[in-house]
Design a protein around this nucleic acid. Sequence first.
DNA 1: ACAGCCGCTACTGATTTCGAAGCATATTTC
DNA 2: GAAATATGCTTCGAAATCAGTAGCGGCTGT
Lengths: 159, 159
Amino acid sequence: MIGDVSNKRTTPSLDATSKAIIEQLQLDGRRSYAEIGKAVGLSEAAVRQRVQKLTDAGVMQIVAVTDPMRLGFNRQAMIGVRVSGDTRVVADRLSEMPEVAYVVLSAGSFDILAEIVCEDDDALIELLNQKIRCVEGVSSTETFVYLQLKKQKYDWGTR
Amino acid sequence: MIGDVSNKRTTPSLDATSKAIIEQLQLDGRRSYAEIGKAVGLSEAAVRQRVQKLTDAGVMQIVAVTDPMRLGFNRQAMIGVRVSGDTRVVADRLSEMPEVAYVVLSAGSFDILAEIVCEDDDALIELLNQKIRCVEGVSSTETFVYLQLKKQKYDWGTR
DNA sequence: ACAGCCGCTACTGATTTCGAAGCATATTTC
DNA sequence: GAAATATGCTTCGAAATCAGTAGCGGCTGT
């Protein structure tokens, strides 16, 4: 899980070489170290050591990302939540739910935004009424059902 | 880019074995085919062939995912957009912007939800006023600045 | 029954990965 | 300023993995 303790604004920024390595892996997470090395001007072992450090430090992780629709999760939605009380506590409760893929504390007319991935409308209704709205401190919710996913990218590492 | 043509509700669902393979790769995108094979009861070559097909079909992709904060993108936000006219056209315009990581057409009080990843507040203001609000058909926007990311997962492939 | 297709296994050589050792450049310490 | 320590890189050989392909059942449709 990335950003779990997001208040660690530790390292100022990354080496240009490390950024180049990340860019390579954003294109293909299984690219070989040797090939990456050739692209960024480093030996195979050096790339390997850097990748190890980057993943250990939690800067990057290499994972399979799937299209939920293709896996039988036909209903996705964003839930805007208004909270009375400590928003972090409520966010933690939401985070525990497996159908919730994404939770963020936000400023604006919602205190929390939560992304839901579930099988169908029934599962969504069930989740909302039986679980989310039952959480202590949730005063109101607003649901934005996804009609069509237009863009989703993970390569903001560059620019 | 996943879900670009999301209306292809083609395959009903996936083989249990393929799901198991995906789960393995969601844990570690660089796990070896042999190891995966041992876990799901298949030969190394069979796993390799399946992974190839899954990625070719766009069901899954193996990529490096980064923590934006660690890479100098200190400001993230969700933008709710209200549109007059064809929402798809507006969504396409938004998708073209590099700072926009995520665009979805939604039902509810917003027509489009767009996630922004940018360097700082200045970049966010600039983007909103100079680019997003200038798009033909955007009638109003609401910004939800991210205060803290509590959860982000990519392994909804199981359950 | 047969041909064609599909997915799996088995096997090969080429490539990659892994760990360790060595080396050069900074940084620290006294 | 010199010795000690740390860091990041390269090189290298052994072990593992990857990629391509041939072969082999099991299905499907005719």
